[in-house]
Design a protein around this nucleic acid. Sequence first.
DNA 1: GGCATCATATTGTCCGACAATCAGACAGGC
DNA 2: GCCTGTCTGATTGTCGGACAATATGATGCC
Lengths: 247, 247
Amino acid sequence: MFEPLGYAPAYLRVSEEIRGRILRRELSEGQALPTETELARQFEVNRSTVREALRKLESNGLIGRRRGGKRLYVTRPTREAIVGGLSQAFTLHRARVVDVWEALQAVQPGIAAAAAERRSAASLARLEEIARRFASRQGPRAQAVADVAEFFDALGEASGNPVFVLLNEPLLRLLRPSLAVIIDRVPQARGRIETAQAKVVAAVRARDTVAAADWMARHVRDFRRGYEVAGIPLSTEVGDEPDAALS
Amino acid sequence: MFEPLGYAPAYLRVSEEIRGRILRRELSEGQALPTETELARQFEVNRSTVREALRKLESNGLIGRRRGGKRLYVTRPTREAIVGGLSQAFTLHRARVVDVWEALQAVQPGIAAAAAERRSAASLARLEEIARRFASRQGPRAQAVADVAEFFDALGEASGNPVFVLLNEPLLRLLRPSLAVIIDRVPQARGRIETAQAKVVAAVRARDTVAAADWMARHVRDFRRGYEVAGIPLSTEVGDEPDAALS
DNA sequence: GGCATCATATTGTCCGACAATCAGACAGGC
DNA sequence: GCCTGTCTGATTGTCGGACAATATGATGCC
């Protein structure tokens, strides 16, 4: 019947205040924040309180410090931070391989089409480079997996759409472990990936959106077959290894 | 030549330690964390340090407190938290409406297809309910916008894929303001949306994946036309209003 | 200009303190 | 039995002050 009347502790109000300034671009990227003591003076709270607020912003990726530096600067969330947060969330929501795969299948053709439409010469070159590298190497599977992921990433970049880039990576990252298993256990995997990459690159070069989307769809569909052949249950939960990404 | 040798302040190490426990599910959801004093004792650091660590986890959504409560509990990031983080990131990466729209266009048909394939009776009912509500109301545009967004959301739920749900919402949320403008300025918008929703619902009911994907694609494509007719430049940057979502 | 030197400012961490309030126990009245 | 008021203890939010380590910036020297 009644809403609980709102109350926010000071550290929250401080962090929200700063966050607002950043989102409204009143504090712009790269700018140095005032020192903790100064912030405490301006907000009229204790330095400990300011520090708690800063920790919140820090883990949101809105502020960070330069390599070995001491002062805090306004930053925008690095891709890594976003990706980490998302894949962490997927993990905790018990997403399964098949869920992630399905999402990948939905997004990738669109990305490929956009890349084919708008790719620059440079991004095309990068794609070709990655495909060549993957094809020429019979090396360890870790490298192969990294190359596959980078191919997707490069495609996202080539699309020129930041949203695609940001959506792409967490998915890839979660599939990575199972991808490694596939490459280990399915002999023909490398060959099929190589072919798909070549076709996609060709389509992107020719700015053929339909072919790019089509081949990308096949590429992703192949993964699913890979899971079946490799004997990985599709209902396996994806897990984000809690690597100490202490930045 | 040499990497800088790692150093992490205590508050980071503490928060990483707890985060790891949570991700490895050694601390399970709903469980109460030890008190700050107790954590300080166990980690052998000061309570202030523990508090900084807790603030980091708090803003990651990994821990939170119950309504009006004092103790902290292990939680998984609410959808709101994830969505907020993502849309904040998109905002800071200066994504434009056209970028978000393109992503929506890529994902939605896949979601619709998945929903058609796996929808439960209950989720179908919810979809029908929303479509009916939207159609029957000539009310204020805010309500209409909310209904449109909820339709997308319900479709994500119906797909039974948590990844879809989590990807879907931030996109919708960012498009919301411009959607409101469309509904205001484009007279035929409501009618077209109504038709599209009806067709999608019918396809989902009939478990017709192709039709569902197809109509959803049209639905999203309509938005783009809406932008043009409403005179909204596609290169407008999406902005996340920094509403004080003080949880 | 480039480089070593040094004083200062700033952060990370600690300690101790106190008010507000939440949780639970406990008793009393309908 | 259940609701209400009261009490006690535990826990959080906030404060003030302190100090070591080190990044920052100025200074002087070649």
